[in-house]
Design a protein around this nucleic acid. Structure first.
Lengths: 234, 234
DNA sequence: GGGAATTTAGGAACGCGTTCCTAAATTCCC
DNA sequence: GGGAATTTAGGAACGCGTTCCTAAATTCCC
């Protein structure tokens, strides 16, 4: 309860920096210079404050990134949800995909760590919608989680592969990357790989949204409901 | 062509450090202290050499990790390959999975970057076997690449999620992780999510190998051959 | 009003990956 | 044999994330 004469409502030196201010400056830096250039020290300069000061407002850099992701996730527009459960899943997965496509760094952050608790409360509808679609399709809750997980892997993997091929196109390619293994392929031992080796970069970077996703989801649901033992969860 | 009297077979100061020696020392450090403790500077101390010296033998730390992964991948044992194409795919994917399970850090390295060229020539049979299995099952080469990609995502994702839940168990849990979102779930708005929220950590960390994989592969192949237009690649 | 309690600011320092540059050690060639 | 060419070794330095600790600014309470 702040007193009328107590400007901050609490004891101690009044903060000259706020978490909101930090997040706004971080987004400004990312927009201006790209997210690779977002460092704690540069961020502190941008705000006009000592670098170590930031650690009173965010736990660490990882925490800062999660806060940014949460902010972004909160802005994901709700797609018009079709009535067909399968189409609902696909529309939602596409929303995740499109959001990640705008911020590939978010995919990197979200892969390496627990993803759900990071999404922010207002983005949980993404999970809920996919679970609901799978359950309406005949899945048990456990099977629905299985479906969600795989959609998540598929979507994040898609983004990461595309971000990588984009990075290579941007000229950061490593010499060892240049298909050295493929050009020296022993066709008699690796006939199938040799057959696609020329198109591999194309295929690997290919955008399979939403056609590939559709096939993927159909397969997942069909198999989860038929082949996966229902009691498997827990 | 080394001359008899030319100890190194080439001009210049003879190397006191070799790439083989560096990789051996790195494996020693990882075995002893865990891979989080593997730093260039510690590695240099382990070898008894200046830190910057290592940069004459490996491109950078990422390159060092890839070389280590290649060494490991070369040791993946060839499983007994069943005649059934589907079972061959599953046996091969399981070999990838088991290899990554031993070195979770490899999964992190392989996710964020192009994975195939990193595997090393002697591990390409993993790709070849999966492609061959899918094609024998009726896929076009392009569809087979699609199948491989998704198996890859599935497998790496599996390892990453498990590594994360392991890290949390090890006491590195962040306060914000502790299911805060789930405990405050609005059940009326998120009924399906609320229904599984208790078991979520279990389900998310659940080992779905090989049962889940089997269903996953079946679904993938069935859908790739029926729903995915054959001409999609390029 | 003035010390105690409390909260934020930020300098100093550490280990990190990495780059730049100079020193050292070798072979080549006259 | 002695300089030129070539190759490796490694010190100095940079910016990074982060921790530790002290200074500064405020409220609380007698």
């Amino acid at each position: 309860m702040p007193q009328p004469n107590a400007p901050h409502g609490r004891i101690g030196r009044p903060p000259a920096t706020s978490r909101r201010q930090i997040l706004a400056a971080a987004r400004r830096l990312i927009d201006r210079d790209g997210w690779e250039k977002l460092t704690i020290r540069r961020l502190a300069v941008e705000i006009g404050v000592g670098a170590t000061t930031l650690y009173h407002h965010v736990q660490d850099k990882e925490d800062l990134l999660f806060l940014l992701i949460t902010e972004y996730a909160d802005q994901i527009p709700h797609p018009d949800l079709p009535t067909d459960p399968r189409e609902r899943i696909i529309a939602t997965a596409t929303a995740i995909h499109d959001a990640l496509a705008d911020w590939p760094w978010a995919a990197e952050v979200l892969t390496a760590d627990g993803f759900i608790a990071r999404l922010g409360e207002s983005a949980l509808w993404l999970v809920e919608t996919i679970l609901a679609g799978a359950i309406d399709h005949g899945c048990t809750p456990e099977q629905a989680v299985h479906v969600f997980r795989n959609i998540w892997y598929y979507t994040v993997g898609e983004i990461l592969v595309r971000a990588h091929s984009h990075r290579r196109r941007a000229g950061n390619e490593r010499p060892a990357d240049r298909g050295a293994f493929f050009s020296s392929l022993d066709e008699s031992r690796m006939p199938h790989l040799a057959a696609v080796s020329d198109q591999w970069p194309t295929l690997a970077a290919q955008d399979t949204y939403p056609e590939g996703l559709r096939a993927f989801v159909d397969g997942l649901i069909a198999q989860a409901t038929s082949a996966m033992p229902p009691g498997q969860g827990r």
